[in-house]
Nucleic acid binder design. Sequence first.
DNA 1: GGCCTTCTCCACCCCGAGGTGGAGGCGGTC
DNA 2: GACCGCCTCCACCTCGGGGTGGAGAAGGCC
Lengths: 227, 227
Amino acid sequence: MAELNKVRLVVVDDDPLVRAGLLMILGGAEDVEVVGEASDGHDAVDVVVRARPDVVLMDIRMPRMDGLAATRRLRDRGSPARVIVLTTFDTDELVLTALREGAAGFLLKDTRPADIVAAVRRVALGEPMLSPSVTSRLIAVATRQGDGSRQRKARALLARLTEREREVARAVAEGLSNAEIADSLHLGLATVKTHVGSVFAKLEVTNRVQVSRYVHDAASVSEADEA
Amino acid sequence: MAELNKVRLVVVDDDPLVRAGLLMILGGAEDVEVVGEASDGHDAVDVVVRARPDVVLMDIRMPRMDGLAATRRLRDRGSPARVIVLTTFDTDELVLTALREGAAGFLLKDTRPADIVAAVRRVALGEPMLSPSVTSRLIAVATRQGDGSRQRKARALLARLTEREREVARAVAEGLSNAEIADSLHLGLATVKTHVGSVFAKLEVTNRVQVSRYVHDAASVSEADEA
DNA sequence: GGCCTTCTCCACCCCGAGGTGGAGGCGGTC
DNA sequence: GACCGCCTCCACCTCGGGGTGGAGAAGGCC
């Protein structure tokens, strides 16, 4: 039973020493079975597809294909393997890209061996696992935009518009001219101008760029207002 | 020495049973010292200010003042205490609000006792600590906006602008008129018009609303371009 | 020296944006 | 019925946005 529930793992790193170290660490855990290795992203995709692991420990900087591209490739191929990115650096750029590509974990290479093993187990269960500094970065990113107050104000003001006015405001925010708006909404030019004027008055602005800002402020963070 | 390094903790929850449970769990850890308790947010602020704990375990739903408001109040007062929010629910709204108010941790109440103790220790060291499901939500939020491709395109295009042109583009995106831009950058009106024209050409747009979109697209997610 | 880019500014033009003051129809409320 | 809000559209006006085609100065590159 315990045998059947072993976590199947593939280790990917271009440095033989790092691979050896990881094998040592993870080989010691009796609930983990290393079912494959690769030394670059290209091989990694092949190995993962064949070995069907539960979890992949994936280095980022590698020759031929880096770990992020490999992760994306695995997603594209529908592989169910959960990827833990293992790297030395944790810039916002890397973290966000990795998570967008579908990585379930992001560990720094200075993570203690016991924590690496714990991460493999947790990720195998479908939970995410990030190094503390990565979590901090993620918090910074997630809380940065959407300070909330500006968004709420924008949404409150937009709520005062009539349905038609909101449509027009959205079109204005897209950068359309009055004529284009009239066309796309099947209205007369004069009608559009009237609505635009009402929008200006209700939002208390004097030009369309400011309308654009309100609309985009209100749209950000809030998931899918209307279909 | 070990005595001196004890983590000073305050426990805040309106349910006496929950408080008792937490005290039991954390009292068992010899490197944690509970230096105060409170049963609502209002009292919590007082207790924390007097007891000067390193860490606060803070319930959200409480009478008089909820945990989020209390956390904000502590931040406003400049308290160095790190707050771990402890709650039953983990909606995007709650998680983001808590983190914005400066919470260092966000744990669900079904967290195992040992993990609660571990969280207190980690947070005391300045690291964040989130429950797995909270981490998942955060990842969803952080990766949602910024699908990346649009942002990268916007940034790439903006990078082709000269320094001056970028300044002008930013001003345009703020909704300023040419005259206002000329004023704020100490330029002639004609100069501004020239720059605006160049910006249009390089961004391949025909009006300022579209410039605004590029600038805001590029700005989102990216941290503080230039001071 | 030439050649490039960047920044500054000019004149001239046209049209769309934005403001003012209307109108009529349509649906709901008192 | 009278009233009100929303949607539709009109005429008229002004001014700023946006396009064209310049110019001169400063700095970097070959």
